[in-house]
């Protein structure tokens, strides 16, 4: 079998901030209404606690984000998805839940640099000054859905795979040298 190829095959751009498409990352959409079994399953899958409302718990290269009151996004290495899906099925057997592998359905970008937030502030109706550390914000980037959070001195932005080219175009447009906001 071929190696998995991310939507833009690692495209990048350097303007007043740096844009990199990364991935593919392992991602599992987990729907469950909460409880001890969920806590245990998430801990076993990505090693984090269950994130509170609008939070993302990050542990190394794994993470768990709160997507809605009954939806979580597990982030893990792409190669571990199969085993983790199987483990989740076992851990949540008998519980009403849905785990879907969405690793290939997403594109992931890193926006880095001291003014990374200014790139995103041109695209999303998000108050970045009030975005807390470890807060996962679901919003839009111009005309498409996007999720974003601050991480490692920059931002991680997740969108749907089919619009990766559009989002890269947005980020390149917004990071043009000379168009800093402050």
């Amino acid at each position: 079998m071929s190696d998995p190829v991310s939507a833009l095959n690692g495209a990048s751009f350097t303007g007043f901030a740096t844009i990199r498409e990364i991935g593919p990352l392992g991602m599992i959409s987990l729907r469950h209404k909460g409880g001890a079994a969920l806590t245990k399953a998430i801990k076993a899958a990505v090693g984090t606690k269950v994130p509170a409302q609008r939070r993302i718990e990050i542990k190394g290269e794994m993470a768990c984000g709160w997507m809605s009151p009954d939806e979580y996004l597990l982030i893990l290495p792409y190669a571990k998805v199969g085993a983790t899906m199987a483990a989740l099925a076992k851990a949540l057997a008998g519980e009403h839940h849905l785990a879907a592998d969405v690793s290939d359905a997403r594109a992931v970008f890193r926006v880095e640099g001291a003014k990374a937030a200014e790139v995103l502030a041109k695209l999303s109706p998000v108050d970045f000054a009030k975005l807390e550390r470890g807060e996962l914000r679901r919003s839009r980037a111009a005309q498409v859905a996007a999720a974003m959070w601050a991480q490692d001195g920059g931002f991680t932005v997740v969108c749907f795979r089919s619009v990766a080219g559009y989002v890269m175009g947005l980020l390149i447009h917004s990071a043009q040298p000379g168009s800093e906001l402050a």
Partner: peptide
């Protein structure tokens, strides 16, 4: 009421 967030109309 689920996110506890003031959402912009363009997000709704």
């Amino acid at each position: 009421p689920y996110c506890g967030l003031m959402a912009d109309e363009t997000e709704l």
